[in-house]
Amino acid sequence: MKRYLSTILYGLLSIIFVAGARFGLINAYEQIVIMFIGINIILCSSLNLINGYMGEFSCGHAGFMAVGAYVTSILNIWFFTSSPVFGGPLFSPGSAIFLFPITLIAGGAAAALAGMLVAIPSVRTRGDYLAIITLAVNYIVKSSIENIQVIGGARGFMGMGKVVDSMTSVINLPWVMIWIFFFTAVCIWILNHFVNSTYGKGVIAVRDDEIAAEIMSVNTNRMKMVAFTLSSGLAGIAGGLFAHVLGYINPGSFTIMKSTEIMVMVYLGGMGSLSGSVLSAVSFTLLMEILRPLQVYKWVLIPLLLIILMLYRPEGIMGNRELTDVFPKLRRYFPSREL
């Protein structure tokens, strides 16, 4: 029982927040902050797989997020609402309540596919070239969306609010928040199992010594493809959730700036540490909100803080260790993985 304490705590926490949102104990702004924390956890931990565990340098995570956001949003608008572009709803609007996770996963799958396409050329190239490829892909995705007028082009795409409304009209619950809690847990579960399996540790072997990995029978190209596909797929799901928190997306939400923000979270938490990613996503999101009154100065202060942090603790909050490595006693509250 004790082993599942962490899981139970997370479940309780989710229920408290969902109930709080349902009964108006948490105001709309606080709800959005909570939901952004979840989304940032997904984004940060998924990028950590590439930049931290695999030691490559991907700086276009927002591009994959955009793919997921747009695909999920378009599917939802097409399926569940009447819009000038897609006509009437394909399914009854109320069915969104159980089809929503499926469209989310579809968005994730589209992003994963995009990630796989990027991984193919980058398997041949090394190190810093992946930075360029992902950077260029980020621009290409943003620029492509801007040029497709059907989905709003540079003006953006809206109407996801209606989808959310049709879900709440069936059962009055904060559905987007529920799905964020759910997918955050799924994301951490997947990544945790992946990087702790001998199979997934192939990714870490690639980071430590790629030549040794390849010669010691690790199919390094496949590992890179898997890691990249998984990471971008999760970013896609985060994108889909992000679109439904705001109810509106435009290409400007998925710029290099957004990618930079995610990268900052990864490095703040520590490369190759999942608990670090979670901690840093929570603290970074909160910090951004606390510093909001500073307006422009926020974006001077935060980078400065990070530069100073780098000088005194270059490995981030956790380095490549997990919380359970630092406090071994915590281990008894997490599901066992002893083999």
Partner: peptide, 26 residues
């Protein structure tokens, strides 16, 4: 001098860029 990984220096560089940009804006 601390022998930090290259990627950490790159992040610092990104941050320096942000400070310059937004410092100017501010």
């Amino acid at each position: 001098k601390k022998g930090a990984g290259r990627l950490y220096v790159v992040i610092t560089a990104l941050m320096c860029g942000l400070v310059l940009e937004n410092g100017n804006l501010a």
